Amino acid sequence: MIDHAHDLESVRAATERLLTEVGALDNASAAEPSRLPGWSRGHVLAHIARNADALVNVLEGRPMYADAHVRDADIERDAPRPLDVQLADLRESGVRFQEAGAAPADWSRTVQLRNGVVDAAARVPFRRWVEVELHHVDLGIGYELEDLPEEFTEREIEFLAERFDGHPDVPPTRLTDASRVWSTGRKADGPEVTVTGSPADLLGWLAGRRDGSGLTVDGGTLPALPPL
């Protein structure tokens, strides 16, 4: 059962970690390239802030974004701002998300995200947690996949394994960190590929943050995953 209140607190803690580390940067380093192709660190920070507002829209029954063009234009507009403005925006948008999450609501309801994706409202705080944690790593400022909370890593591996479950382009795949096991890909129509690695390496591969070179593959080659 999803505990949205627990996840809201996890988002708050992750946002504080992000603010602390970003606060040690300067304007020049904030303008440097991030680990995401074509995006500076400023782009990543702008995206994190605008995502908070987008998820407030979702929780309050409005479209997540007006359209893809507006989403992209807002990020481009906000990316070059001075660091102190970025930090204030991250903090204030994070507060708005927490306030929306604290409002009385039916957390069992279904909400609509981007591109027609629907989910339970109760999972929205976890989706926000994902945005804060993974994009913190994307900044390339010393926070790595190995630094993510263990609970987060395990849940995100499970979430992404479910996302690719049944996908026709992903062969039957067994994921393991030698103590836990997840399954993904299309339903078994032949031998499974077994992918073994550390939780950080498994998550990095599933989330498109690592190329899988740190993983061991038995029964075939490392599957090519569709874009998220």
Rank of each mutant, 00 (worst) to 15 (best):
L18G: 00
A121T: 03
A52N: 12
A68P: 13
D177H: 07
T194Y: 01
V95P: 02
W182G: 03
V85G: 01
H69V: 15
R91Y: 12
E76Y: 00
D74P: 08
G197D: 01
R91W: 10
A100I: 04
L25D: 09
S198Y: 02
E92V: 03
D3C: 00
T196M: 01
R123A: 12
W182V: 00
E150D: 14
A105N: 07
V193L: 00
A66W: 04
E156M: 13
L55I: 04
G190M: 05
I2Q: 12
G94E: 11
L228D: 11
L90I: 14
T194L: 09
G204S: 02
H47P: 06
R71F: 12
E146S: 13
F164E: 07
P168Q: 11
F159M: 09
P199S: 10
D138V: 02
S93R: 15
W39Q: 05
P63S: 05
T184N: 08
E133H: 09
G140M: 05
D26V: 11
T176N: 02
L145K: 00
L19N: 10
V85Q: 15
T196Y: 03
L160F: 04
T221L: 07
S213K: 08
L139W: 11
I157M: 01
E144R: 14
S40M: 01
R50L: 12
G23M: 04
E144H: 12
S40H: 10
D74M: 15
V217Y: 03
A73P: 08
R128V: 07
L18T: 09
G116A: 03
R128W: 06
D189W: 09
L202D: 00
H47S: 11
T110C: 10
A102F: 04
R96M: 06
P171A: 04
R71I: 09
E21D: 15
R81F: 11
L202T: 03
N27P: 08
L206G: 00
L36P: 01
T15Q: 15
L175A: 04
V56M: 02
